[in-house]
């Protein structure tokens, strides 16, 4: 799949932002006044920034408001609703903490659940696609959620929680890669099944339907990333999980460690998210003799 910067930034930053909001809503940590303002500001900048970035992925954003209407079947619609609701609820909760010295903890819990729901619904947009076998597995939502919890915990400065969750996130990422590598062959799509000609013999592409490229090839048959995938996986894993975990473990007492870990983690997150798209193969590729 084409690793469009808009969707990479969207899933990465909104994951971090809503992860932060989830912890802030559940009172971990409970902050007041100016300090609360700073944390809420960062969380909103990330989550709203991420959501705005996704708008750049749209071909025709002027109909955007209609995207909240089809929650009965569409995970994308559900995600939009969850995102707006959690931003509204957490906004109210934040106002109480920042300006009124009030801890409306019930509101915080509701916002926390909604923020969690936003990340879950985002992951389901990808998980639901049978056409992209690498995404179509339980590990996709697990990965998105654990990374969001871990990144959120790191950003709110909870060292113990983030150490544990980033370690867990690294493990889940490795499992997701290893399981994901097998998914395409498990689904069993081939040019033979795609054309229905398999009973006759081996099928191969003879001539493409078009000499140039098209939307399908540009959007869904992206192969550049796979060349350096192994190296990028190692780099991504080190930045995402290994380095931050080691830093937090051995040098956790220093203030700069959390901030430095945040930078490394975000770079790692962008790398693994890029791979999430670039490595994913869409079944339509087989019609073009490409996988």
């Amino acid at each position: 799949m084409h690793p469009a910067p808009s969707v990479i930034f969207f899933t990465s930053f909104s994951g971090l932002g809503f992860g932060m909001l989830m912890w802030l809503g559940s009172g971990l940590p409970l902050l007041w006044g100016l300090e609360a303002f700073v944390y809420f500001f960062v969380a909103y900048a990330l989550s709203v920034g991420g959501l705005l970035s996704s708008v750049f992925h749209l071909g025709n954003p002027k109909n955007g408001l209609k995207a909240f209407s089809q929650w009965r079947t569409s995970w994308l619609s559900r995600e939009g609703i969850c995102a707006v609701l959690s931003l509204l609820v957490m906004g109210l909760y934040g106002i109480g903490l920042i300006f009124l010295e009030e801890n409306w903890f019930l509101l915080g819990y509701v916002g926390s659940v909604l923020s969690f729901g936003t990340v879950f619904t985002t992951s389901m947009i990808y998980m639901q696609l049978k056409t992209v076998p690498r995404w179509n597995m339980l590990w996709t939502p697990v990965l998105f959620m654990v990374l969001s919890w871990g990144g959120g915990a790191l950003l709110v400065g909870d060292e113990n929680l983030s150490l544990f969750l980033l370690l867990l996130g690294g493990c889940v990422q490795v499992v997701a890669w290893l399981r994901g590598d097998k998914r395409f062959s498990e689904v069993g799509v081939s040019l033979e099944s795609a054309t229905g000609l398999g009973s006759r013999g081996r099928v191969r592409m003879f001539e493409s339907p078009h000499t140039g490229t098209n939307y399908l090839l540009k959007e869904m048959v992206y192969k550049v990333g796979r060349k350096h995938a192994r190296k990028l996986r190692v780099m991504g894993l080190l930045l995402l999980s290994v380095f931050p975990v080691l830093l937090l473990w051995f040098l956790g007492e220093y203030d700069w460690v959390v901030w430095f870990s945040v930078i490394l983690h975000v770079l790692g997150l962008l790398t693994v998210r890029w791979l999430f798209f670039a490595e994913a193969e869409h079944v339509v590729g087989v019609y073009y003799g490409k996988r």
Partner: peptide, 28 residues
């Protein structure tokens, strides 16, 4: 097309490559 936002998710969901997002109008 009056309701399409051009997100492209339907094209991702189709195994047959039957949907193409138009490069000029931005709708599916």
């Amino acid at each position: 097309e009056d309701a399409c936002i051009g997100c492209g998710l339907c094209a991702w969901a189709c195994p047959y490559g039957a949907r193409e997002l138009d490069g000029v109008s931005g709708v599916m």
